[in-house]
Design a protein around this nucleic acid. Structure first.
Length: 856
RNA sequence: GGGCGCUUAGCUCAGUUGGUUAGAGCAGCUGAUUUACACUCAGCAGGUCGGGGGUUCGAGUCCCUCAGCGCCCACCA
């Protein structure tokens, strides 16, 4: 036998069941280290896998089960194929979602200004009024809750049978992950791949943090066009613009129209005066101005939207930013140089009414004032238009000027596109998503977040004698000091007492975006800096869902390209979404999110895996309990068929292909050979769904036709060589089928395998053609005609509404020579399976089958 | 506006490089029944392959076009 384990006396239970297999085998696999990665290996022997560290912020959902199962099936195939599979598991336990969960779970809020309270205990029941606690207390609660969540996640994973090596478990907030993340950052800083600057930044006013382009989403929102009159400085009348954001008027720095626009061409270079605030601004030309939109001329404000940022940058306009980090209006003086109003008193009076207010309040005030001044032209017009939101946010993003760290992506666009082409995508068309994302980049990647539970930037800054922070001369730790927290560690040459003092130092207050850390998942999982890393990097496989191509996949490619001038992984397996039974996307707000544990307990892990494996790569798939039931039924069939076949076999006797002498048996193995070739090829192309489909289909035919045909022969009736041939075929076929099912249905496959083997099926070798002996040139040429004849017999009995065991007095088959020969070879089996008394096979040109039932 | 995918039986989906009469499961219907398995077995019925055009001896499959659904990207004032 080619199997890794040895056969021995069979132990088949009286009443096999699929219930409880998950607990039993998860424990055994742990105890036997079935999935342990062997470090004494070479890169060529390794198959390494990079899976997403799920966000630890509550419960895993069914989408995780779906995606990870697809990856696990592939992992199990390569393991059986002889690869040394490196399959770690990580948890992404820092970042906003985790903070959000901790705030709600304990009823707390982080206030970095507060001192640490060593005796703090969170309220027994979280109330709506959140308790403010120090950063250190907050981080402690984060660690406490994520530890609990991670145990629950791990339990689910083992129950599902994900074949990770749990000794390789990692978390993104662990000291090692932080050290790697900080090392990656310092390397980028040294290479000048990352920079900090004060710049307009996409800002969520509720979370009070910057967000990156990748975290944007458009949502349709109602808006209103207001037509507003600007006065020409030359006194030649007014120019109307249309805007949905009249509240940005005090931030206006210019008007802009298309360079070719006849209507405004003569105005370029001239100036106009803004309504209400009476600030003189230039009229400029830029190609992004759309003559079709509104009146064809737009106002540029700092900053109403991302186009404003582009115009501001490219036209080198002044900054008149007025919206603060809390979304409220900052103080401004219209008599100064920053806001040079021609009528400062009235401008300041009006501004005084909106200062400190929200955007909505300001809009109402300004629209009223425009109406009063006569500068609002005509009626307003309600529209619905896309507005940019943080994907987890509730209010529209503002653009706020702040200091942030950016990774240079724009200047590497072409190289990043080329890296995308280097990857092997499954399905292939998913590469378009990567490409269109990279082509559409318009901002460098902002990796700093003004939050608390994350990897800190390993940077301090000197504070000059005047108390100003010198951002341009950061103080850096050495690599062997990592990880560090600049808010509690002190840079070399300074004392803690000098923190935030003139002549002292100040720590960078921000933390890294969660993607900035998870973009290093291959480095973290592979322990960058150790010998292990060279064995596993670049990874062989990245598994993930399509929705995070622009975030996780993109950012991982960026980091790998900048650090190693290579791709981070060779193959990308993209999974689809799980849709609810009505084919709608699941979301918390709709309330149609399904948690997997109840389904797992009801149907069993193999059944859920069966459903998940039926979803092809990249394809969105609806939850379908019907599919799970079919998976469960298949598992039970595998138990029963294995029990039956092993019951036909003689205890310990191991047979091999040389015992297979009967033409029907040889043909069955030839067909099995086709299946082995097909499934192997499919797996090599990550088509796990096809493997299951083909194997399942073969298996049912094997049970219903082949086993029925050779039942009596295998019992020992008739010639001894024929009995031996049937038993050898049953044994070989069963062994192959159990192994073909093993990646998809690991629990039931392991159960039946262990009835007759000592080792695990998951360490057995993937079936090969060699173990099937000499294969026919024309597979199916014997088996198929015999099955057809058997089917004719069954049809006759079914039509006559008699038992399938009813006797057939005479079965007459007239057939062309080849078929007749096949039937003669299978005549004994056909007779016994059909309970046929007299079988007559004649040569004829046309196939003709006559079934004469025995009259009672 | 640009791009990608999907459209095959009531439902969920297979259909390899174009090749006999288009397949499976579920649901439906008709039966069988001390059986390895009722979480069973056998059988039946159900489709002008989204519409139109083209290439070809031959198209579910290739090309063009239209429509519907879903998604991705976009500088939406």
């Amino acid at each position: 036998m080619p199997d890794a384990s040895t056969a021995r006396a069979f132990h088949v239970p009286e009443k096999p069941t699929v219930d409880g297999l998950e607990g039993t085998w998860a424990e055994r696999w742990d105890a036997e280290s079935t999935y342990r990665f062997d470090r004494s290996t070479s890169r060529a022997e390794v198959y390494s896998i990079d899976t997403p560290p799920p966000t630890v912020s509550g419960e895993l959902h069914i989408g995780h089960v779906f995606s990870y199962t697809q990856g696990d099936v592939v992992a199990r195939f390569w393991r059986m194929r002889g690869k040394n599979v490196f399959y770690p598991m990580g948890w992404d336990d820092n970042g906003l979602p985790t903070e959000r969960r901790v705030e709600n779970y304990f009823g707390v809020r982080c206030d970095p200004a507060l001192p640490y309270d060593a005796g703090f205990t969170p309220p027994e029941k979280p109330s709506k009024d959140k308790v403010s606690i120090s950063r250190r207390n907050f981080v402690e609660l984060c660690h406490r809750l994520t530890a609990v969540d991670e145990e629950a996640f791990k339990h689910l994973w083992r129950y599902l049978g994900v074949s990770v090596d749990w000794t390789l478990e990692y978390t993104t907030i662990s000291p090692e992950a932080q050290a790697i993340s900080q090392r990656g950052f310092l390397n980028m800083l040294e290479r000048n791949d990352v920079y900090s600057s004060v710049a307009p930044t996409l800002w969520d006013i509720d979370f009070r943090t910057a967000v990156s382009q990748a975290e944007l989403e458009d949502r349709e929102r109602p808006g209103t066009y207001h037509r507003v009159a600007f006065t020409r400085s030359d006194g030649a009348g007014t120019i109307d613009i249309e805007t949905t954001r009249p509240e940005m008027l005090p931030s206006c720095v210019a008007l802009v129209a298309h360079p070719e626009d006849e209507r405004y061409r003569d105005l370029f270079g001239s100036t106009v005066v803004t309504p209400l605030f009476k600030v003189e601004v230039p009229v400029l030309a830029h190609e992004l101005a759309d003559p079709e939109k509104g009146s064809g001329i737009a106002m540029i404000c700092t900053f109403g939207d991302t186009t404003d940022v582009t115009w501001w940058r490219e036209l080198q306009l002044p900054t008149r930013a007025l919206i603060g980090r809390d979304g409220r209006y900052l103080p401004a003086d219209f008599s100064g140089s920053e806001f040079p109003s021609l009528e400062p008193d009235s401008a300041n009076e009006l501004y005084g009414r909106i200062e400190g207010g929200t955007v909505n309040q300001a809009r109402a005030t300004i629209v009223d004032a425009l109406r009063d001044s006569g500068e609002l032209i005509g009626d307003t017009r309600d529209i619905v238009h896309p507005v940019k939101f943080y994907e987890k946010g509730e209010r529209p993003l503002e653009i706020v000027t702040s200091r942030q760290w950016f990774v240079k992506t724009l200047e590497h666009r072409d190289e990043l596109l080329a890296r995308g082409e280097e990857l092997h995508w499954f399905p292939d068309y998913m590469k378009h998503r990567y490409r269109s994302w990279v082509e559409g980049l318009n901002l460098d990647w902002n990796i700093s977040r003004q939050r608390f539970f994350g990897v800190p930037f390993p940077v301090w800054y000197p504070v000059d004698d005047a108390g100003e922070i010198e951002f341009d001369h950061p103080l850096l730790p050495s690599l062997d000091q990592l990880p560090i927290d600049p808010s509690s560690h002190v840079p070399a040459g300074y004392e803690e007492s000098q923190r935030n003092q003139p002549g002292g130092f100040s720590g960078d207050p921000d933390v890294m975006d969660t993607w900035a850390t998870s973009s290093l998942s291959p480095e973290i999982a592979g322990h960058w800096g150790s010998e292990l890393f060279d064995l596993v990097y670049p990874m062989d496989l990245r598994l993930q869902a399509h929705e995070i191509i622009r975030t996780w996949l993109f950012s991982t490619v960026v980091r790998s390209h900048l650090e190693f001038h290579d791709v981070p992984f060779r193959n990308v397996l993209i999974s689809g979404w799980v849709l609810d039974p009505n084919r709608k996307k699941m979301s918390k707000s709709v309330g149609n999110v399904v948690t997997p544990m109840p389904l797992l307990e009801q149907h069993g892990a193999d059944a859920l895996r069966y459903w998940a494996t039926s979803g092809r790569p990249g394809t969105d798939t609806a939850i379908d309990e019907g599919q799970m039931k079919i998976g469960r039924r298949l598992s039970i069939k595998i138990l029963n068929a294995s029990k039956f076949v092993l019951g036909r076999l003689d205890g310990t006797e191991l047979l091999d292909p040389s015992d297979v002498t009967n033409p029907l048996d040889q043909d069955l193995l030839s067909l099995l050979g086709l299946l082995v070739t097909d499934t192997t090829k499919s797996f090599e192309h990550y088509d796990y769904a096809r493997v299951l489909e083909r194997t399942e289909s073969f298996f049912w035919s094997f049970c219903d036709n082949y086993v029925e045909l050779v039942k009596t022969r295998a019992y020992g009736e008739g010639e001894e060589t024929d009995t031996r041939s049937a038993r050898a075929t049953l044994q070989i076929a069963l062994s192959v089928l159990q192994r073909l099912f093993a990646p998809t249905l690991p629990f039931v496959s392991e159960e039946v395998w262990r009835w007759w083997h000592d080792g695990s099926v998951h360490q057995a070798s993937w079936p090969s053609l060699e173990e099937l002996g000499t294969l026919s040139e024309r597979p199916g040429s014997v088996y198929q005609p015999v099955c057809d004849a058997l089917e004719a017999v069954r049809r006759e009995k079914s039509t006559a509404k008699v038992s399938q065991r009813a006797a057939v007095a005479r079965l007459i088959v007239a057939a062309p020579e080849e078929i007749a020969t096949a039937l003669r070879a299978g005549a004994n089996d056909l007779r016994s399976a059909g309970n046929v008394t007299e079988l007559i096979i004649e040569d004829a040109n046309e196939l003709r089958i006559e079934v004469v039932l025995e009259t009672v």
